[in-house]
Design a protein around this nucleic acid. Structure first.
Lengths: 197, 197
DNA sequence: AAATCCATGTAAGACGTTACATGATTTG
DNA sequence: CAAATCATGTAACGTCTTACATGGATTT
């Protein structure tokens, strides 16, 4: 289960509360793993009961107290064990691709808006990643040289950037295909004036 | 739930048994959605009980009988409804990226073998996709012109090909980063002969 | 006054994985 | 004769998602 390990890595990078972890999963860690706060709270509890984490109650003024979790030695050891185990290359689950193949049995043109919406979302993510890259790794305020942890974070971020660029190019390809098919649909072999069923 | 819809699309493309679907999920549909035979049998039963599918018992000689499922009108309607609903752009779950970030707290060089193994798997998938593309869409035996369904299958396959190419390039980047870090680890600022802790 | 943020949680249900089970036929 | 292929399923368990619930502080 990689959620355990993703949480351990994130807490090693910086201790924090369940709420803070949930925010990180919307940002940097979220580039490659998603989780909701419900999942996170459950796993934090389990990892603490297993001794992998320690908690510290942090009272706050004007805010609910928070529980700050840190990685304990057994947690670090469990992570290290996992790092040395081989894992399966992941398999995709891509709803949009199911839709595209399904469109053959419906109206392909009806998918155009949906694909354009996905295009916008991915363009937004790319812009966000590029901003983060400039801020943390390649801009004038970035540390020089980067330490090992930062180099590794950077190469993961480059993966996210490459993924978004590839996806955007593919969505352009999909849009071109859908446009071709819908203009083709109006035409029979003899030309625009041909009879239709 | 996209497994329902992936099964409906696959059965619209060609009716078949649970076993045959499981094989397809290892191949063409599996480019973008995975499922095991246990999941498939459960969903087939449910879809049939809901009236979305019809079954036909096909006796076979020297083999267990099979149940051939086809999509009924309510199933087609359910698929069409889903096609017109917006879906969320998917979020990644990439174990290897978790490992790469985790490597900062362990030995980055220990990841090299694992990354090379993933590289090989993705290279194999790419070769497999390219073979399929040549056979079905771009080679001399492919139909000309392709119909709408084939064009849509092809654009999805192009997505799989782009994904594998992007991933392979990224894994090269990861390997270069890991090699740089492990050669750097042996060196202190003053050069190879510097003292170590 | 309403919405959003911080901060934590419970509960129910859907979904997915792994292991187990059967049995004939074909291939090596 | 052993292993793989075809074909279907059950059971148990683990994970993930969605909805519900609370309550003060801050922002609009």
């Amino acid at each position: 289960m990689a959620l355990d390990h993703a949480i351990l890595v994130s807490l090693l990078e910086k201790p924090g509360s369940g709420y803070e972890l949930a925010r990180r999963f919307e940002r940097s860690i979220g580039y490659f793993w998603t989780a909701t706060h419900q999942q996170i709270y459950r796993v934090l509890k389990r990892l603490e009961s297993e001794g992998a984490l320690t908690v510290r109650d942090v009272p706050q003024r004007g805010r609910p107290d928070k529980k700050e979790y840190s990685v304990a030695d057994p947690g670090r050891a469990a992570l290290s064990r996992w790092l040395h185990e081989p894992i399966e290359p992941e398999s995709l689950r891509h709803d949009l691709a199911v839709k595209i193949r399904g469109a053959a049995f419906d109206d392909p043109a009806a998918l155009i808006d949906e694909v354009e919406r996905h295009h916008q979302v991915h363009s937004g993510r790319l812009a966000h990643y590029l901003t983060g890259e400039l801020r943390d790794f390649t801009g004038p305020d970035a540390p020089v040289p980067l330490d090992a942890g930062q180099e590794l974070q950077h190469v993961v971020l480059r993966g996210g950037i490459a993924y978004e660029r590839m996806t955007i190019a593919w969505l352009d390809d999909v849009l071109a295909t859908l446009h071709t098919l819908s203009s083709r649909a109006g035409l029979a072999v003899g030309g625009p004036s041909a009879h239709s069923a």
